[in-house]
Nucleic acid binder design. Structure first.
Lengths: 343, 343
DNA sequence: CTGAAAGCGCTAACAA
DNA sequence: TTGTTAGCGCTTTCAG
């Protein structure tokens, strides 16, 4: 008899063997009624089922996973839940994961490259059936070794550069162009684009901004600050001291918009009279802000859901790695920080 | 030889057996170097390690879990990530879970009782080592059968009524009392308390409200609306038509505050001049709102972290079920929706 | 120090 | 239809 070593003294839960014995059938038969497949006579089924109910038997999914070499678990790695945008994506992804009978294993990368690979590695050891991730710097060459067991993978929000990886993205550049064009219509000449960080999506948005500015014969200015309230404030003060201070700002993500709005309030710069703002990424209660923000809204829920769906498709067909790219439309939501009257 | 049945055609990743064979050692020895325990000579260790690196071998955690009967996974069930409060709790809990070398399995109950039990049942089958949950109606009698394998369990934000369950809570009643007392100081006589839902926490807050009102010789009015913008608006319209319309509202949770602020804006009721507001639960950008909200702030991150810590403590000591209750302090944050000048 | 062997709980042949 | 058997990949005695 095996001696109990762990500090866990609880008695062991019933197994299929117990069920089979009590029902007076073979373990194979018990398994069959459990899974509802194979041929089992009605009476046997009933008898086994009775024992299962009686014992409150719960099949051990870990054992099942080991045997069938599929865990029915999906790994989900995102930078953090701080950004409501991410929370929405995760929630939507989890719904489709759960609907597929799988469970989602949630992990955070803090947007750090090392953590991204480390977490993937961890998930691979846990034998997840697939991984969904918002990458923030992971390159194809780093991803592949981590995925050496050839686990289906889908990136969303940002792609993994350098190789064949499926990704679900939004129209970053087009959205940015629409935003900046709108500002142009309001007659602004000195528009700067800013952000607190500069991953892929921001680069795309900045490109859209630059293109529109150049086409209009204006000089684009992209300013990236440190991600802190203080840094954004200082940055803003500097800009205002210039010969031609900006009259409009294109804020390239949600968090940046927040910092900016605070900084503007501190410097008592009126929005939109003294400074027009258009942001990329909507905020939860943007309509209730002192300056209702005009934004390019990303379809966050759709993004997460589509990513999960694509992953399951890959798992089902086992198509190996492809580089399918789905690009979702964004929506321009006019409130009044851009100078438009509120509707 | 086993025929491959699943649609998965990928070749199987290396196992410990492969490692052992290639290193010319026994499988037990390979396992020992893998886990760094037991006595293994330096040279053997080196040899095995070399093969591991070479093969890019990744230990199969599922097999390990089955063998040692511990999964190093913690189940996390929350209503949804919609509320930023929950997102913060989850994020904090995940951090301590990950720091303990475990992974977190995230699941949503949508606040529905059936789903809560169903998800727990599911997690139990997956052999999680413990469960962390924000219960929304689950009773002790329902929880226990679901947990029949005696898995450590900690509730947070809300307790599980009717039995011995550890829980981490916040001072709902005291916080509410502070909020209402503050409103009283501003001279209000007609203060109503409202919410869009009425689970445990709200009942506690309402109790605090009622106590303060009664002590002040005033009549408490608790109004619960349907959880929709429209319903809240209609409710508000009705109140305003009364003989003595409220001059102040105690909004008992974050989402309700949002709905209320919108309704107030639509009816063009000025905050705080015509209507003072104090909310329970802070909002992410409450300071940037048109009416910076005075709130009772809950220590969301601490709540999630403490819950996870308590769970690991229970797992380590396997103390069985107790009914430890930790009650965290809340913080009263004065902005200006209550009538105070902004600082 | 190291190898062999016995399972963890379950599924999927394969016989009966 | 049903019972038996052989593992899934790993840890942990138990001998050597």
């Amino acid at each position: 008899m095996q001696k109990e070593v762990s500090p866990i003294k609880r008695k062991r839960p019933p197994t299929l063997v117990h069920v089979a014995r009590l029902a007076g059938v073979g373990i194979g038969t018990a398994s069959r009624v459990l899974n509802g497949d194979g041929y089992v006579s009605e009476k046997t089924t009933a008898r086994v089922q009775a024992v299962i109910d009686d014992l409150k038997y719960r099949p051990n999914e870990v054992a099942r996973s080991l045997k069938v070499r599929r865990s029915r678990a999906i790994g989900l790695v995102v930078p953090s839940l701080e950004d409501p945008f991410t929370a929405t994506c995760v929630q939507a992804a989890q719904s489709v994961i759960r609907a597929n009978g799988a469970l989602s294993v949630l992990t955070f990368s803090e947007g750090k490259n090392e953590m991204e690979i480390q977490e993937i590695d961890y998930l691979v050891r846990r034998q997840v059936d697939g991984i969904l991730m918002i990458p923030r710097g992971t390159q194809y060459k780093q991803l592949m070794p981590a995925l050496n067991q050839q686990i289906p993978f889908v990136a969303f929000d940002q792609p993994v550069p350098g190789g064949k990886v499926d990704s679900i993205l939004v129209k970053n550049k087009a959205g940015a162009m629409e935003a900046v064009t709108h500002l142009l219509k309001h007659g602004h000449k000195h528009i700067i684009a800013t952000n607190v960080d500069s991953p892929y999506t921001i680069v795309q948005r900045a490109a859209g901004y630059e293109e529109v500015m150049k086409n209009a014969g204006l000089t684009p200015v992209v300013a990236i600050s440190q991600p802190s309230q203080q840094a954004v404030l200082e940055h803003l003060e500097l800009w205002m001291k210039r010969k031609h201070p900006p009259t409009a700002i294109f804020s390239m993500n949600g968090l940046t918009s927040i910092y900016l709005l605070r900084a503007l309030a501190q410097l008592k710069i009126k929005v939109p009279e003294q400074m027009a703002i258009v942001g990329f990424d909507d905020l939860p209660f943007a309509d209730l802000l002192a300056n209702p923000l005009t934004v390019v809204r990303q379809p966050a829920a759709q993004l997460g859901a589509r990513a999960a769906e694509l992953l399951f498709e890959r798992i089902a067909t086992d198509t190996g790695y492809t580089s399918k790219r789905v690009t979702l439309d964004v929506e321009f939501v006019i409130r009044n920080s851009c100078g438009c009257k509120e509707t």
